[in-house]
Design a protein around this nucleic acid. Sequence first.
DNA 1: CCTCCATCCTGTGGGC
DNA 2: TGCCCACAGGATGGAG
Length: 276
Amino acid sequence: MPELPEVETVRRALEPVLTGARITGLDVRRERMVRRQPNPADVAARLVGRRVSQVGRHGKFLQLDLDDGEFVWVLHLGMSGRLTFDDDGAEPLHTNVVVRHDGGPDLWFVDPRTFGFMAVFTPEELAVSTIGALGPDALWELPESRALGEQLDGRSASIKSLLLDQRIVAGLGNIYADEVLHRSHIHPRRAGGSLDASELTALRRNVRLVLEAGIASGGTSLNDLAYLLPDGRAGQFLMKLRAYGREGGPCRTCGTPIERLVIAQRSSFFCPRCQT
DNA sequence: CCTCCATCCTGTGGGC
DNA sequence: TGCCCACAGGATGGAG
């Protein structure tokens, strides 16, 4: 569920609490939440007793440096993951992992669908994993349009599916990809290699614009059961969406009803008039 | 190398 | 009200 703006919002909430904190305990209640770990039994041993030196992010992956980079603690929220601190309220259903530390209240990893996961890698293990093959971060390392064009050159797959490919640029998901394409007036089914220079320029500009606007609004909460800020509030970007989830509603540019297509097994919302 | 597809899970909302 | 189905913010591994 959470895309870059949501994960960045979470990162900013974790940063002041966890930076410098020492992990004192780990309670894994659903083993499935620990995945992609070279040896799953190592997770507690690698985590407990270590100090968080930096709270980072690459695309949708949270990456927390432990003991100045000796290990990297990776968390991914999947489709329904939430990170929140124990606020003395009732522990939510599907609190699958509890992390104790000396920087404040326990950290709760809540995830009904369990598509999220966590793992603790050495930098070497991380580098050779698929996480190490992530493309540049869509916010912090967004390539120039010319370099984007080189990535897309010759590709016959739809631009929508290529925007979702985290090896090209890391951070866009289904909502923000649709928003970027709408603002760029590009049809989601266009072949990636068919974009011209001015379209690439618009695409790049709108990736930045949409992600920054999403972060400024605290992300997108589609309903109050999935993504929420760590303090429990809902993100406010939903009302600013121009395409995603608006099938049948008027295009905010030209009034034409927004249509829905399935591309790469995901819903795509677009304006049939503005986006060509 | 590239593209497409099924799969991992649980919950919700719409239609009947 | 209850049942059934479609669908949901993601990533991966394997087939072709």
